[in-house]
Amino acid sequence: MSVTCTEVLKLIPLYVDGELDALRIDEVERHVSDCPECLGQLEMLQRLSQAVRAQYDYQPLPDSVLARIEAATVRPLRAHPVRWFVPFAAGLAIGAAAIWMVVPGLVRKDRFAQQLVSSHVRSLMLNNLVDVPSSDRHTVKPWFQGKLSFSPTVPDLAKQGFPLLGGRLEYLEERPAAALVYRRNRHIINVFVTDNPVFGLSEVDSAGFHVRHFRFQGLEYWAVSEVSEPDLKEFEEAFVASGA
């Protein structure tokens, strides 16, 4: 055994928090596979971490507070109040391009990643998150039939903490694509699905958004969200594990 229990016990919190590199992850996993004491510690911390997330008294932002914030910041001076995403919607297509040009440092070299993030943001802003609102995979999956030349996998991930909200049709690189919409707490995860294998990107961060790419059963999947990186990784793992 190359690492001692003392060393592993120090690594376990970092393992649970997704702070270790692949080499260290491997060390920890090999050690706990035949050390019941360290495995016990690891399972205990993992259970606590999951329980805190699942049971935490997370509060949605009240509409009244959101309205106050909008009024104090972005709301244009108008006689009639409008939801903040409505005026924004019109300007977004131009706006998104313009912002990337105006603000240095936000420019992403990867045009495709930019397209994914824009689609994600647009889906949040325009309130057109789903064309087929349903938490039932047996409703969402057939809805794409006849609209796409392929059939995306739509796993039910509610038990893993990612309830399905529905799906919608998207266009990526001028080809129809599926967007599957999941939720983690109050945050949206868009999963874009195409049968177009030309893009090799794996993980991209863009101004607070994370993008993860995975290939599954012959199709290309990109998960885009503002949830944390470990959460998005967890989502990908849950998706692949239960999507079969």
Binding site: T73, W84, F88, L92, I94, G95, A98, V103, A207, G208
Partner: peptide, 22 residues
């Protein structure tokens, strides 16, 4: 097709801050 600074500021705020207000 000029965007005012206020419009860009609004757009940026919505894109980079609003998702985290909750």
């Amino acid at each position: 097709m000029a965007l005012s600074l206020k419009a860009v500021q609004d757009a940026k705020f919505k894109r980079v801050v609003m998702p985290y207000v909750e």
